[in-house]
Amino acid sequence: MDNVYAPGRNHLFVPGPVNIPEPVLRAMNRNNVDYGSPAVSAMTKVLLKDVKKIFKNTTRTPFMISTIGTGAWESALTNTLSPGDRIVSFLIGQFSLLWIDQRQHVNFNVDVVESEWGQGANLDILALKSVDATAHTIKAVCIVHNETTTGVNNNLATMRKILDHYRHPAFFLVDGMSSICALDFRIDEWGVEVALTGSQKALSLPTGIGIVCASPKALSCPFGTTSTPNPGYVSSI
């Protein structure tokens, strides 16, 4: 089979995966380890402790999953919500569109708030929708922190203030795929219930690890009680 790579360094010119820095490549140049070895447990414990730092997290639980961004989002959604639940989601670019499509495939009731691409999320609409706080029909608010396709990032602190102002109990779920570890991200301070990122973005690692951070509220929710999943949905993990 012909070698598909040109001589020299192979450069990636895509939003992600990113080019892996030489120090990271050299750090990976080591022998395989027995997965049953105590060294693996010790290393995993250190990684889970250290990964909290990129979220500015002291109260939430991190998870490292063998998956890509799609799988991380699916895990965040299906472990906190039930099919049929109403979700407010902001459409501001291609990646936010993909996440909305996924939620619709899993049979969530997606209330799409669309803005012109190149603009941020319309938070005035969020304020209007939050007036329903007494009815609690909105179970979650989902947003992409940084929309890679347009380069627009959203003000998560303001979103949290709106939800708090109306005392809305909706889960606050954030896709931080291209923002966490690259932009300022404060999961505790901004009251984000679930946030996620991937190894192949700002962490500059190979593709394959989804990192999800969940609040005590998210971990204690009685998910999966309102209806059954769509048996025809095939995950793209």
Rank of each mutant, 00 (worst) to 15 (best):
L128C: 05
L163M: 13
G118F: 11
C221S: 15
V192F: 07
C142G: 12
Q119C: 10
T134I: 08
H136F: 11
C213D: 10
I143Q: 09
A135L: 08
D164M: 14
I187E: 02
L183H: 11
I162G: 01
L173P: 04
A170W: 00
S199L: 04
T197Q: 00
Q200M: 12
A121C: 12
D184T: 09
P216V: 05
T150W: 02
M159D: 03
A121Q: 09
L123N: 07
G151V: 10
P216E: 10
T207M: 11
I138L: 05
A133I: 01
D184M: 01
C221I: 15
C142Q: 14
N122A: 03
N122Q: 08
T225R: 11
V141R: 02
K201T: 11
G151A: 05
G210Q: 00
R167A: 15
A214K: 15
L219H: 09
L126E: 01
L183V: 02
F171N: 00
V192R: 08
V144W: 03
E116G: 07
D188Y: 09
R186I: 02
G198S: 09
G198Q: 03
S220L: 14
A202M: 01
D124L: 10
V194S: 10
E189H: 05
W190M: 02
I162E: 09
N155W: 09
L196Q: 10
N155Q: 00
P222C: 03
S199I: 03
T150G: 11
S204I: 06
H145K: 06
T134H: 08
F185D: 06
S220M: 15
F171W: 12
Q200C: 08
A182K: 12
S215Q: 01
T148R: 11
D132M: 02
S199G: 08
Y166D: 00
W190R: 03
G198P: 00
D132A: 05
E116V: 09
T137K: 07
H136S: 15
T197D: 04
I162M: 07
K217V: 15
H136N: 15
G176C: 02
P222N: 15
I211A: 05
G198R: 05
F172N: 04
L173R: 09
Q200F: 11
P169Q: 01
P222R: 12
E114T: 14
G224I: 11
F223H: 14
T149A: 15
A182S: 13
D175C: 00
E147A: 12
D132N: 07
V174A: 11
